[in-house]
Every structure is written in structure tokens, then in C-alpha cells.
Simulated assay, not measured.
Amino acid sequence: MNVPDDGAAIAAFLSALAAEAGAARNTLMAYRSDLELASDALSGRLGRAQPTDLNRLADGWATLARSTVARKSAALRRFFGFLLDEGLRADDPSSALPRPGGMQRRLPRVLDHIDIDRLFSVLAARLAASKDASADLRLLALVELLYGSGLRATELVSLEVRAISPDRPYAILKGKGGRERLVPVSDRARAAVTAWKAVRGDAPGYLFPSGAKHLSRVRLFQLLRTLAAEAGIPPDRISPHVLRHAFATHLLEGGADLRALQTMLGHADIATTEIYTHVETARLVELVTTRHPLADKGRET
């Protein structure tokens, strides 16, 4: 493993959490405390921890409140997910952490269809008005791939230029844990990428280059927030992950099979995918509560 020392790894994780997820100061402080305590308990080897280490760590939480255990587990899961996404670890040992039963899992934030239409309307207006449309063509390709294919931010920004072909309605990606998966690429997304490539040129390398490397996840997050503000959507409601969630939720609403969705999202465990059934159930409950013909009569009795 190529993991930096715990101090550097924790600092990089918190920086990314602040930039990409807009985490509040109190959240960052709580995460820092939980991660540093875990690092101390493992003698500074948290970043290199194995499942047996995490089991031993969790044993020390036996007397803590369930909500505290849940918070500590969540902090460590996100930390190991970050290390995996950044290529600093080849595995994620966090399955060894406890999942306190009976606690409601937080539903992912999603955008509705109207919000998505607003984003694309702003992009269309920008392209129609711009004399140098290169930046907007790039952003259009990025948004089409996030919402149309459900890519993770890291997968998107690190795409090779040859990954998306105009005559191939899918791409083969290497996601978390080095697992390969096939993802759909819509006609719209392929057209947007083709238009971006016409500006970018045919040179090999990253599809979305930036200097000697590729576009950063932080910069992608900033671009989306600016676009959201212009579309009249509160910027704190959008992120690359929110567009990925919208992809999944809207597919499920349209009748997608849960197993097919699991494959497209690259989830190792279908339990992770099942969170979207809760999103859809919540929407259906609200629909019945507000639209059913007996709803008003029930309130009158």
C-alpha cells in the first residue's frame, strides 16, 4: 500500500470533504477527532489498518452510545473510501466496522427532473451565447456523463480519451477496488463528448486534462456549484455524487431492475443499492398522502 502517514492522510481527507461535500466546520472537527483517536489507538497505522485492526478498535467502543459508534464508523468508512478513490489503498477494510442496528440510514440527496432540466437549459443558453464555447462544451460532457451514466467523480475526471467512443453505447470502467464494470453511455452523452473532443483535440491522455494531469474533483465540484447557482438551485444541493444519485433514483422511478442498477453503479453489495428503494418509497408515500382522493377526507374526520 502507498498510504501516506496518518496525519497527512487525515488532512487530505478533511480537505477533500470540505471542498467536495461542503462539510460544515463542526462536522470536520468531529471527523478529525474520531480519526485521530482511531489513529492513536492503532499506533499511527490507521491508513494501513486491516479488518482485524478495525475489529480490535471497535471492541473498544463497547461501552459507547449507539449513536457515537455510528458516527465513528461513518467517519472511518468515509476515510477508507477516500483512500480507495485516491488510489492510496487497493482495498477497503471498513466492512469490519460495526453497523449499529435499528438506526435509520440517511437517504441520499437527489435532484428532481425539473432541477435536471434547469441545469441543461442553462448549459444550452451558455452554448448559444458563447463565442468561445470550449469550457461549456467540457462542462456539458461532464454533466451528461455524471447524470447519464452514474459515474463517480474520480471515475469521471480520470477517464482516458479513448474510453468514450461515438459508436459504442457503453464504457468499461475500473472502479472501487479495481473492479471493472460496464456502464451505459447515452446518445446525448456520446454527442456531448464528441463535441468536446473536437475542441480538445485527438492527443492521447485524459479526456478532461488539466495541466499535466486531469481535472481535479475539487474543480469539478466548483463548476457544478456555479452551474447550479445560475440555474436557481441552491449550490449546497448539488455535487457529483448528487447527480450520480439522481441517475440511480430516476432510473428506478422509470422501472429499472435493482440488480441492473447495482451493476451500473458498481456496488459490491446490493444492500448499498437498496437505499434507492427507500428514496422511491418515500416519494410514493408522499404522493399517496397528498394526492389520494381520501387524503382530504381523512383530515376532516
Rank of each mutant, 00 (worst) to 15 (best):
residue 2 N to W: 13
residue 4 P to L: 08
residue 6 D to L: 03
residue 7 G to L: 15
residue 11 A to Y: 11
residue 18 A to Y: 06
residue 21 A to Q: 14
residue 21 A to I: 12
residue 21 A to D: 11
residue 24 A to I: 04
residue 27 T to S: 13
residue 28 L to I: 11
residue 30 A to Q: 05
residue 31 Y to G: 00
residue 32 R to D: 13
residue 32 R to K: 04
residue 35 L to M: 04
residue 38 A to D: 06
residue 42 L to M: 10
residue 44 G to M: 08
residue 52 T to G: 14
residue 53 D to W: 05
residue 54 L to Q: 00
residue 62 A to T: 12
residue 64 L to T: 08
residue 65 A to P: 04
residue 68 T to A: 14
residue 69 V to D: 05
residue 75 A to L: 00
residue 79 F to M: 02
residue 82 F to K: 05
residue 83 L to G: 05
residue 83 L to T: 09
residue 84 L to G: 09
residue 84 L to Y: 08
residue 85 D to E: 12
residue 89 R to W: 10
residue 90 A to W: 11
residue 90 A to M: 10
residue 91 D to A: 05
residue 94 S to C: 01
residue 94 S to V: 01
residue 95 S to G: 10
residue 96 A to C: 07
residue 96 A to K: 06
residue 99 R to F: 10
residue 104 Q to D: 11
residue 104 Q to C: 06
residue 105 R to Y: 12
residue 106 R to N: 09
residue 106 R to T: 14
residue 107 L to T: 15
residue 107 L to K: 03
residue 107 L to S: 03
residue 110 V to A: 00
residue 112 D to I: 09
residue 114 I to W: 12
residue 117 D to G: 12
residue 120 F to T: 00
residue 120 F to S: 01
residue 123 L to S: 00
residue 129 A to R: 03
residue 129 A to S: 07
residue 129 A to W: 01
residue 130 S to L: 14
residue 135 A to G: 14
residue 135 A to K: 13
residue 135 A to M: 08
residue 136 D to A: 08
residue 141 A to D: 08
residue 141 A to P: 12
residue 145 L to P: 01
residue 145 L to S: 01
residue 154 T to M: 14
residue 154 T to E: 15
residue 160 E to T: 09
residue 160 E to D: 11
residue 161 V to M: 14
residue 164 I to M: 15
residue 165 S to H: 15
residue 167 D to K: 13
residue 167 D to Q: 14
residue 169 P to F: 06
residue 170 Y to C: 14
residue 172 I to H: 12
residue 173 L to T: 12
residue 175 G to E: 02
residue 176 K to L: 05
residue 177 G to W: 10
residue 178 G to T: 10
residue 179 R to D: 07
residue 180 E to C: 11
residue 181 R to N: 04
residue 183 V to L: 03
residue 183 V to G: 04
residue 185 V to L: 09
residue 187 D to L: 13
residue 187 D to M: 15
residue 190 R to V: 02
residue 190 R to Q: 04
residue 193 V to Y: 02
residue 193 V to L: 02
residue 193 V to A: 01
residue 194 T to V: 10
residue 194 T to R: 07
residue 195 A to H: 00
residue 196 W to D: 03
residue 196 W to G: 04
residue 198 A to K: 15
residue 200 R to M: 13
residue 200 R to S: 05
residue 204 P to A: 05
residue 205 G to N: 04
residue 207 L to I: 00
residue 210 S to N: 15
residue 213 K to G: 13
residue 214 H to D: 03
residue 215 L to Q: 05
residue 216 S to Q: 08
residue 217 R to Q: 04
residue 219 R to V: 06
residue 220 L to Y: 02
residue 223 L to Q: 07
residue 224 L to A: 06
residue 225 R to K: 13
residue 225 R to M: 03
residue 226 T to Y: 03
residue 227 L to T: 00
residue 231 A to S: 07
residue 238 I to V: 12
residue 239 S to E: 07
residue 241 H to M: 02
residue 245 H to D: 06
residue 246 A to E: 05
residue 246 A to H: 02
residue 248 A to L: 04
residue 249 T to W: 09
residue 252 L to A: 09
residue 253 E to P: 10
residue 253 E to D: 08
residue 256 A to G: 08
residue 257 D to W: 15
residue 259 R to E: 12
residue 260 A to L: 11
residue 264 M to V: 02
residue 265 L to T: 10
residue 268 A to W: 03
residue 276 Y to D: 01
residue 277 T to S: 07
residue 278 H to E: 01
residue 285 V to R: 15
residue 285 V to Y: 13
residue 291 R to L: 11
residue 291 R to M: 09
residue 292 H to K: 07
residue 293 P to W: 03
residue 294 L to H: 13
residue 295 A to N: 05
residue 296 D to L: 12
residue 300 E to A: 13
